[in-house]
Nucleic acid binder design. Sequence first.
DNA 1: ATGAAAGCGCTAACAG
DNA 2: CTGTTAGCGCTTTCAT
Lengths: 315, 315
Amino acid sequence: MKRQAISTTRLAEICGVSQGTVDRALNGRGGISQKTKERILAAAKAYGYRPNPHASSIGGGKSMLIGIVVFDLHNAYFPELLSKIEEECAARGYYAIVMLTHKDRERELECIKSLYHMSVDGIVLCPINKGEDFENFLLSLDTPVIAVSNRLERIAYIGIDNRGAMRDSAEHCIKEGYEKLIYVMPKLKDGDNAHAQEERLLGFRDAVTAASVPHVITHVDEVDTSTDNGQRVAVVCSSDLYAQMLYQKYKDKNIGIIGFDDQRMLGELGIAMDSVAYDVSATAKGAIAYLLDGVKPMQYIPHRIVKRGSIQSAP
Amino acid sequence: MKRQAISTTRLAEICGVSQGTVDRALNGRGGISQKTKERILAAAKAYGYRPNPHASSIGGGKSMLIGIVVFDLHNAYFPELLSKIEEECAARGYYAIVMLTHKDRERELECIKSLYHMSVDGIVLCPINKGEDFENFLLSLDTPVIAVSNRLERIAYIGIDNRGAMRDSAEHCIKEGYEKLIYVMPKLKDGDNAHAQEERLLGFRDAVTAASVPHVITHVDEVDTSTDNGQRVAVVCSSDLYAQMLYQKYKDKNIGIIGFDDQRMLGELGIAMDSVAYDVSATAKGAIAYLLDGVKPMQYIPHRIVKRGSIQSAP
DNA sequence: ATGAAAGCGCTAACAG
DNA sequence: CTGTTAGCGCTTTCAT
């Protein structure tokens, strides 16, 4: 197998035209007769021409590269997102470069700089940085960037309405007659971008405040479900990870529990967990459409509450 | 931020030398005086020089790209492997391009051709293809390829000894006094490369044959644990996925169960599952060392049985 | 409508 | 030791 299938230079020789003409034919630029264009296209197909992204990139064209920068692949959301993005890229002949920040702010900067230097055609970013300087930095890049999960003020964003979604989650529990809600969220690290988590917390507060429902906000290793008066208690989790960890503990104790993200793995484990679900594929599609076609992303990806029985109606 | 930090051309001008000399300094090729070398290196650092991989690639040098081709990111093993490979790549200034085959043989070929055309410096591949033609195709590439998980005859491989590992798993159960073993493995698709699964099956057979232990070989949705005479039964799974799915079902029935791959997620779920563990990081390191340094991989990554109580000693 | 030529940043071969 | 030169495949500009 020859590495370089065939170059525009060779195609030009073969067709007896100049390289410029080949370029016009291949890239659909005007200023070429239908006849020669077809002739060149035919030859290109016959010889299995493939554009060389490196040469294209160096010559000021597209690199056919998309960078995707996320925390890690530990939280099942990221592999799923990555998978969908790869799919979108592959469908368009693009390549996906993955970089992991491990929630290290410096490292995230390095990743972005590297990708930028690599002339990627766009970056999908779940940011751990935030603030004016960081946004200015991103905006100074002449490469489109779209944020997922954690929002930034002046950068395009695609994802769900975290606040609304968590409000719905808590309201679902309230509606089912739970009298006390325990909200489980991660410990937030100062200075980190935790926009999604902050929004979810606000959404939870919205719901419990509006309904005047007793509640506690805590972390996964500090959950205390005891009550003074035998109320029906539900554990509202800011991610499926917590729901997973707490499920075994509470499922037999008549304590409600609801997760967030609706990881399919739970179903595979035979765990019937209520959760907040949404279409990761839509996120991926929206992100790529923005980066490559400049399509402004919809405000929010829709979400929904899926009921599987871990939150039960009051008897 | 300028996209191209600074080029060798500019560096040459700045230092008042030729581009060739700059190249010699930068790439540590001989034939240059210590003095000028240091001067150039200093300037490079001062101006924040970064090599342009596209130009390098097009000029016949390295592309700084590693391709990783796997089935999907669904089986937790792959995200973990990918994560470790990204880490290795990042540490060396390389970029990792992910491509997913979804176990489609044609698609796998497309992925590899694309990566090859992209001039990647190496490919980590979990193959779904097999056979002489496929191997010849891989060998015809002037890009190193290393197989993980599924072995190929004439292609470098890195991973565990699947046969030995499963033998150990089954022997572990036998040693703990289980009198009947049920082996749970996937349905294999004809023509697909399923080397790892085939080896594991052989290993299971090795163990039960040597010890003359009654056994059944079946699939996850067809497991039947009933016995005629109340023997102690253990379910031996060819992957943690099955162990996950069956755990809930059997954990209270005094039926032993053991998985394969030791996915950390199980621990997070509070599931104490015996399993076959090994160091994915070693696989990643070995793979990259082979691709980039030509270091022949060790024959097998070591594995071990981790005991957490889902296989119990006979009373 | 087409050709010619320059240049992107780097590597490599050959002269001095 | 160092400089010169050509060339990788593509884009772009300027002629024709």
